[in-house]
Design a protein around this nucleic acid. Sequence first.
DNA 1: TGCCGAAAGTTTACATATAAACTATTTGGC
DNA 2: GCCAAATAGTTTATATGTAAACTTTCGGCA
Lengths: 156, 156
Amino acid sequence: MPPSLQKELKKRGPFDSVEQEAMLALMRTTDLLENRLARLFRDYGLTLTQYNVLRILRGEGKPMPCLEIAERMIQVAPAITRVVDQLLKLELITKTQSSSDRRVFEIELTPAAAKLLKRMDQPVLDLHASLLKSVNKSDLRTMIRTLGVVRSGVQG
Amino acid sequence: MPPSLQKELKKRGPFDSVEQEAMLALMRTTDLLENRLARLFRDYGLTLTQYNVLRILRGEGKPMPCLEIAERMIQVAPAITRVVDQLLKLELITKTQSSSDRRVFEIELTPAAAKLLKRMDQPVLDLHASLLKSVNKSDLRTMIRTLGVVRSGVQG
DNA sequence: TGCCGAAAGTTTACATATAAACTATTTGGC
DNA sequence: GCCAAATAGTTTATATGTAAACTTTCGGCA
């Protein structure tokens, strides 16, 4: 059935579907939040990606191969290679070839990095809280649950 | 029950706060969704950003200055300059200097772009629906509302 | 009229993401 | 033991995002 002329001329609604609206809301909101986080990290001389790598290393508590870091970042390998190079230059990590498997390079935090992370902990927590202060914790948990459902639906 | 983000990321300790968990859930989920969208657009020879610019132009229905496009993308001017150049090369837009204000360049869709967009409409709608099929519409609306609260809280 | 600040875009520099091709090393079969 | 496939990581190419400096043009105001 051809669409009526009236419908064709009717101004396009803001969204074609709830799903599309949700998608745009997610993208815009996340972009906004990431910008604010990046701004804080810049005050400490780090980018968001660099900080994430350091956080992962601290969470692990021992040396990690590059690709294992990449996996946890949900990133592709080449991105990690570059970040590792930068962090090396900043002397926030060390990179040593594994003796048991010489394809592997073990990445480890330096004491300077541990100190830097510790100094950033409270400001980061505060910023997280501040950015989401307008939403009560119950609604946050609901959103976290919904986002989990989205991810499991996409991956499956 | 959806897998917890904590487990997905193999993080050892608990999250430091609900806010942090929400932040990570948002970033990871959005990243996943954007990747899938980008994959579809690539099939049509477009990047996500290029598609968004074309969508905005179609939504407006008449020529637009560069910076007005940038505003709607929540982007910075230089990014638009580049994507406009690319779309020009693809002959999907035209760029003409305004006669009333010669600082301004009016960007307009070509017929080829309109045709391309029309061809993409249904696949894009379908993908949106497919990516979010695991969440019922009521939960989606709740999430959209929560995300709106987040944005208003951050900007204010 | 002429100057000065603001606005529209561009350019440059740097950080990052993805894909694809490549190197080096290990491992599994035969 | 040797060769093929798999794995860890790098390199290159293209796209994007942000910041900062710069150009051209417009408009207000003395």
